[in-house]
Nucleic acid binder design. Structure first.
Lengths: 213, 213
DNA sequence: ATAGTTTTGTTGCATTTGCAACAGACTTTT
DNA sequence: AAAAGTCTGTTGCAAATGCAACAAAACTAT
């Protein structure tokens, strides 16, 4: 018996190990460029090697929602973001990116020995996908902007293991991620500062005290 | 090479096949009973054989959010709902349930031959998790109650392959799932009926015309 | 250095949403 | 058959949110 999904994150060292096995194609993208369109035909898996990218969907009326954001080591691809084929799901470069592209079948297949490299990558993908979606649901599920912000801040704080942290998203993008009006969010941020719950300047935040709601 | 994740759903016939391999423990629960607490220590995987159950989280202030709902064949367990250890995540019986319980390690391990039974179950679990989370994010991400409802209805309609369908949740529960006030949701439902966008009585819905927003 | 672009920050106002509370319909249990 | 519980449906009112619009700051590219 060999455990398929040990709880190990995907780091750069590991990625280097995988390279030999997967023979990825490396490509570069500059800000605003579409890295991948997550439609059902797409068979690629992307691994972000540098830069940042967003998974974005835009409804006909122009409302933009950031579904996910990717940094070094993050994996994305249709299979891990099953889209519904209504609105387009795009992975767009936020800052200049280099990306490894691998064939989906290649990654997701089990070679004769169930080699650990495959297993590790699959594990990381699944884990990443699950955690991210879960976090997003938890944040979006809060009933007020205030609660959404605090929930998100709490998670980032926990991930960074510090009460002071820089958000992985700009405030504009954060509004799209938590799916609220930006100005309303700014107003709420101001309140949180006034009430000394947090101190924040742009995307640098310090949580001063834990509050309920 | 053997493909790990073919896009095949988990049905009753398949489950029967798995039984011999997994030797699940069968248990029954009546309405309101806690089937599973999804904390980090929990090593079980549950498969709902009959009845319905909800994955629920309740914040300190009593706000209840339905994270997911399960019907026959659905799989749940900590690994597929990575909880954050802030709020408790509970799987609660909504209607009398019978559940198969299997050890997580057993399910998630790769036996010598990477047997197809394991592979199929893993596939189903991952797929279920991914799709459900994705749907939920998509619905919660809409900015208004109206848009949330229409988005959700659209998805159910698509899944049922019919413009007339019965929701898998009661209206009260639907409000908790889309994370809005129930009375406000009822008000919006009434509007949608008045505007002849839908016809609905309780959880029976017919979509009359496609609308933007 | 400068022009262009993006991001942050702010406000007034209209609209939407949530809250509280209640009544009737429907289910389940005793 | 009655009682208890849940679910649906409704409303007035207060509060939160979204929209529109603008100014200043910060960042990028030439």
């Amino acid at each position: 018996m060999k455990t398929l999904y040990p709880l190990t994150p995907l780091n750069k060292t590991k990625l280097d190990e995988f390279a030999a096995c997967f023979k990825p194609v490396q490509r570069s993208y500059s800000r605003g460029e579409i890295i991948m369109q997550l439609n059902n035909d797409n068979k690629s898996v992307g691994i972000l090697m540098s830069g940042t990218a967003h998974l974005v969907t835009t409804t006909f009326d122009g409302t933009r929602t950031i579904i996910d954001y990717f940094e070094q080591g993050d994996v994305f691809g249709r299979r891990f973001s099953p889209c519904t084929q209504i609105d387009p799901y795009l992975v767009v470069a936020k800052k200049s990116c280099t990306v490894w592209l691998v064939d989906y079948e290649k990654v997701i297949s089990c070679c004769e020995k169930c080699c650990e490299k495959h297993i590790g990558l699959i594990d990381s993908m699944i884990l990443t996908m699950a955690r991210r979606a879960q976090l997003h649901v938890e944040v979006l599920g809060k009933r007020s902007i205030r609660a959404k912000l605090l929930s998100y801040f709490y998670h980032v704080s926990k991930a960074r293991e510090s009460r002071t942290f820089t958000l992985p998203l700009s405030l504009s993008d954060l509004a799209d991620y938590i799916s609220v009006d930006r100005s309303a969010m700014m107003r709420e941020l101001k309140k949180l500062n006034n009430e000394k719950v947090i101190v924040s300047h742009a995307s640098k935040v310090t949580i001063l005290r834990d509050v309920t709601v």
